[in-house]
C-alpha cells in the first residue's frame, strides 16, 4: 500500500489525507484498547482482566467472527447481507433438531441420556451447514436472477429464516439440550489452553484472509465491488461470483450455528436478534467500505470484539447490557462517516 501523491503536490491536503488514512486505519485498535482499559480500571480487580474472562470474551466472539468473515466478502462486492443472523438461528435449529431426534428416544433425551450421540451430532453438523449454505444460495440467486437489491432480498430472508426457525422450534428453546458430549468435547473444550471454537474461527479467518488477498476469489470480489460492469467486460462471470459470495456467507452462518449449539447446547431466536448488527459493525469498524471494492478480512475479526467486550464489561459493571446495542449502533454510523470522508478526500474526480 502506498500513499504516494500522484497529482501536483498540495502538501497540506496530502498531509491531511494521510492523517485521515492513518487515523481510519488505526482507530479501531485504539478504540478497542481504550475500551479494555476503561473496563479494567472501572471494575473491581480480578473480574474483567482475567484470563478466564478474556477467554470467555473470545469464545463468545467466535460466532460473530465467522459471520463477519462472510459479511466482509459480501460488503466488498458492494452488497449487504442482513440475513446471516437469521440463517445462523435457522441452521442451529435444524442441526439441533437432528441431534435430538437421532441421539435417543424422547424420554432418554429429556433424561439427559444420549445413546447415539456421536452419530447424531455429526449428522446435525452436516444438516446445519447445509441449511446455512442453502439460504446463502437463495440470497445469491434472488439477487442475481431477479435483479433485486441485496438489501431487500436479505431483509426478506432475514424474516423468513427467523420465522421458519421459530416454527420448527416452537418459538422457544429446543426441547432438551443437544448431547452434552458435544459441548464437553468441543464447544467448551480446550486445546493448548484455547477453546476449540476459537481455534476454528481462527483457522477459518486465516484461510479466508489468504484467499481474499492472494487468490482469484478475493480479487474478483474486489473487482466486482469496484466496478461490476468493468468486471463483466473483462470476462468475469459476475453473477456466478456473487452467488458464490452469498453462499459462502450462508455456509459460514451455518458454521456459526454449529458453534452456537456446541457452546450453549441450545438456541433461541431472541439471542440472535442482534447478530446482524454485530457482524456488520465488525466489518465496518474493520475498515471495509460499504461502497464496495476495498476491505480486510483480518480487521473485521478485530472489529468483532467490540460488541462482545462491551456486553461483557457492562455486565461486570452491573450496567444494563442493552447499552451495548446503543453503543454499537452509534459506532457503525461513526465508522461509515469516516469511510465516506476518506472516499471523498481520496477519490476526487470519480
Amino acid at each position: 500500500m502506498s500513499a504516494t501523491p500522484t497529482t501536483e503536490p498540495d502538501a497540506g491536503r496530502d498531509r491531511g489525507r494521510m492523517a485521515l488514512e492513518a487515523f481510519s486505519r488505526s482507530w479501531l485498535f485504539v478504540f478497542l484498547l481504550l475500551l479494555l482499559a476503561f473496563f479494567w480500571l472501572s471494575t473491581p480487580s480480578g473480574t474483567f482482566l482475567t484470563s478466564a474472562n478474556l477467554s470467555q470474551i473470545a469464545l463468545s466472539t467466535s460466532e460473530v467472527v465467522l459471520l463477519a468473515i462472510g459479511e466482509t466478502f459480501v460488503i466488498v462486492t458492494a452488497g449487504i447481507d442482513l440475513s446471516i443472523g437469521g440463517i445462523l438461528f435457522f441452521a442451529a435449529v435444524c442441526g439441533g433438531k437432528v441431534m435430538l431426534e437421532l441421539s435417543g428416544t424422547n424420554a432418554q433425551v429429556t433424561a439427559g441420556v444420549y445413546p447415539h450421540a456421536t452419530r447424531a451430532v455429526l449428522l446435525g453438523i452436516v444438516v446445519a451447514l447445509a441449511a446455512g449454505t442453502f439460504w446463502g444460495a437463495i440470497n445469491g440467486a434472488l439477487i442475481t436472477r431477479m435483479r433485486l437489491p441485496p438489501f431487500i432480498v436479505t431483509l426478506g430472508t432475514y424474516g423468513m429464516t427467523f420465522g421458519f426457525g421459530d416454527l420448527l422450534s416452537g418459538g422457544t428453546y429446543l426441547g432438551a439440550p443437544v448431547p452434552t458430549s458435544f459441548s464437553h468435547n468441543f464447544g467448551q473444550g480446550k486445546g493448548l489452553g484455547i477453546y476449540y471454537p476459537i481455534w476454528l474461527a481462527l483457522v477459518v479467518l486465516i484461510v479466508a484472509h489468504v484467499f481474499f488477498r492472494y487468490a482469484r476469489f478475493g480479487r474478483y470480489t474486489s473487482a466486482i465491488g469496484s466496478n461490476d460492469e468493468a468486471s463483466r467486460r473483462a470476462g468475469i462471470a459476475v453473477d456466478r461470483h456473487i452467488v458464490k459470495v452469498y453462499t459462502l456467507a450462508g455456509f459460514l452462518a451455518g458454521m456459526a450455528g454449529v458453534l452456537d449449539l456446541a457452546i450453549y447446547t441450545n438456541t433461541t431466536s431472541v439471542s440472535h436478534l442482534t447478530d446482524n448488527l454485530n457482524a456488520i459493525s465488525a466489518v465496518v469498524l474493520g475498515g471495509t467500505s460499504l461502497f464496495g471494492g476495498v476491505g480486510t478480512v483480518l480487521l473485521s475479526a478485530v472489529g468483532a470484539f467490540i460488541p462482545t467486550v462491551l456486553t461483557n464489561g457492562l455486565v461486570i459493571k452491573n450496567v444494563q447490557p442493552f447499552w451495548q446495542e446503543v453503543a454499537v449502533g452509534a459506532t457503525i454510523i461513526f465508522a461509515v462517516y469516516l469511510d465516506q470522508l476518506r472516499r471523498r478526500r481520496g477519490g476526487e474526480g470519480r
Binding site: 482469484r216 474486489s222 468493468a230 470476462g235 468475469i236 471494492g293 477519490g347 470519480r350
Partner: peptide, 24 residues
C-alpha cells in the same frame, strides 16, 4: 477501450491490466 474507462478503481494498475486474465 470503452469510453467510460472500464477499470476497477480500487484495484491497482497491474491487477487491472490482468483483470479476467490473471496468471496463476
Amino acid at each position: 477501450v470503452y469510453q467510460d474507462l472500464a477499470l476497477a478503481d480500487d484495484l491497482d494498475a497491474a491487477a487491472n491490466l490482468f483483470l479476467g486474465r490473471e496468471e496463476y
